[in-house]
Measured scan of single mutants.
Amino acid sequence: ENVVSAPMPGKVLRVLVRVGDRVRVGQGLLVLEAMKMENEIPSPRDGVVKRILVKEGEIVDTGQPKIELG
């Protein structure tokens, strides 16, 4: 899985990584606000952040790609 998608609709509060960052499985990639709760979205695997496809403040839909890992 190279693309991390939104598990639920919500607002991107914070992006916790930058392009080029090495990430580990379970590491937080971003914080999504859904139903007035903050949810940290974890990396599904070890890898390197290739692209960030969302911006802080953006509203995302379920299944929308957010971060691409290499």
Rank of each mutant, 00 (worst) to 15 (best):
K55R: 13
G26Q: 04
V25L: 13
V25T: 12
P7W: 11
L16I: 05
V31S: 03
S43I: 03
L69S: 01
L69Q: 01
V3C: 13
P7V: 11
V17W: 00
L16Q: 01
V17G: 00
P65L: 09
D46G: 08
G26P: 01
P44A: 04
L16S: 01
P9D: 06
G57Q: 05
V19S: 04
Q27K: 04
M35V: 07
R14K: 11
M35G: 13
R45K: 11
R45P: 01
V60D: 02
V54F: 03
G47A: 10
G70P: 03
R51Q: 09
G20C: 13
K55F: 11
R24L: 11
G10R: 03
G28K: 10
G26K: 05
K55I: 11
V15E: 00
L16H: 03
E1P: 13
R24H: 12
M35D: 14
E68P: 03
E33G: 09
K11R: 12
P7A: 12
Q64N: 05
K50P: 01
L53W: 12
V4M: 05
R18K: 13
D46V: 07
L53F: 14
Q27L: 06
K50C: 14
P44W: 07
K66V: 15
L16A: 00
D61N: 13
R14I: 06
K36P: 04
R45H: 10
M8F: 15
E40M: 14
M35S: 11
E58I: 04
G70I: 14
M37K: 12
K66H: 15
G57I: 05
Q27S: 06
E56T: 09
V12M: 02
L69K: 02
K55P: 01
V54P: 01
D61R: 15
M37Y: 08
V31M: 05
G28N: 10
V23M: 02
Q64M: 09
E1V: 14
K66R: 04
P9L: 08
G10F: 05
V49A: 02
E1S: 14
K36N: 15
A6Y: 06
V19T: 07
V3G: 04
P9W: 11
P44K: 04
V4Y: 04
R18L: 08
E58T: 07
V12H: 00
N2R: 10
V31F: 03
R24N: 09
T62F: 12
V31Q: 02
V49K: 01
G63N: 10
L32R: 00
E56S: 08
R45L: 12
N39H: 15
S43Q: 02
G57V: 03
R45T: 10
P42T: 14
Q27F: 05
L69G: 01
E38I: 12
S43A: 11
V48N: 04
A6T: 06
N2H: 14
A34I: 14
M8H: 12
L53Y: 13
V60G: 01
A34L: 10
D46T: 09
E58N: 05
E40A: 08
I52W: 03
V17P: 00
M8T: 09
G70Y: 15
E33V: 11
L29H: 00
P7L: 12
V3H: 09
E68F: 13
P7N: 12
D21N: 06
R22E: 11
D46I: 06
K11Y: 07
K11S: 03
I41H: 01
I59S: 10
V3T: 11
N39V: 15
V4T: 04
G47Y: 04
V25Y: 12
S5L: 13
V4G: 04
K50G: 05
L53A: 03
I41Q: 01
T62Q: 13
V31L: 08
P65Y: 08
I67W: 03
L30V: 11
K36I: 06
R45C: 13
K36V: 06
S5Q: 09
L29P: 01
V25N: 08
P7R: 11
G47L: 03
R45W: 14
R24F: 13
V15T: 03
L32W: 08
G26W: 07
R22G: 07
K66F: 15
V12W: 01
S5C: 15
G28T: 15
G57P: 01
V4R: 03
N39R: 14
G28E: 04
V31I: 13
K55S: 11
N2Y: 15
K55A: 11
G57A: 04
Q64H: 09
V4S: 04
P44F: 06
P44S: 05
L30F: 13
L13W: 02
L32Q: 00
S5A: 11
I67A: 02
P65K: 08
P9I: 08
V23K: 02
S5I: 13
I52P: 01
I67G: 02
T62K: 14
L69Y: 04
R24W: 12
P7G: 13
E33I: 12
M35C: 14
G28Q: 07
I67R: 02
S5M: 12
G20P: 01
V25K: 15
V15F: 09
N39G: 06
V17Q: 01
K11V: 11
Q27H: 05
S43V: 02
K50W: 10
V23S: 01
R14G: 02
D46K: 07
P42C: 14
D21I: 10
V15G: 00
A6H: 04
V48Y: 14
K36W: 11
V17R: 00
D61H: 14
K55H: 12
P65E: 06
V12P: 01
E58C: 07
M35Y: 13
D21F: 09
V31T: 07
Q27T: 08
A6Q: 04
V17N: 01
G26F: 06
Q64I: 07
V17H: 02
P7S: 13
R51M: 08
G10V: 07
L29K: 00
L69I: 13
L53H: 07
V4P: 04
G28P: 15
E33P: 00
P65S: 08
P9T: 09
G28S: 13
K11L: 09
P7I: 11
K50Q: 10
R22Y: 14
S5V: 14
K66W: 15
A6V: 07
P42M: 12
V12D: 00
P65M: 09
V49C: 05
K66C: 15
G20R: 05
N39S: 11
R45M: 14
V23L: 03
R18M: 10
G26I: 04
V60W: 05
E68S: 07
V60E: 03
L13M: 08
R24I: 12
L29N: 00
L69D: 01
V31Y: 04
K11Q: 06
E33Q: 11
I52R: 01
E56R: 09
L29R: 01
V12F: 00
L16T: 02
V19C: 08
V25S: 10
K66L: 15
V17F: 00
G10E: 02
R14M: 06
G63T: 05
G10T: 04
R22N: 11
I52L: 06
R51L: 08
P9A: 13
L13D: 00
E56P: 12
E40T: 15
I67N: 02
P44M: 06
N39F: 15
L29T: 03
E33M: 12
V15S: 00
V49S: 00
R18E: 10
L29Y: 01
L13Q: 04
N39Q: 14
V60I: 08
L53G: 03
V17E: 00
V19F: 03
V31K: 02
G10I: 05
E40L: 15
G57F: 06
I52E: 01
V31H: 02
G20K: 05
M8S: 09
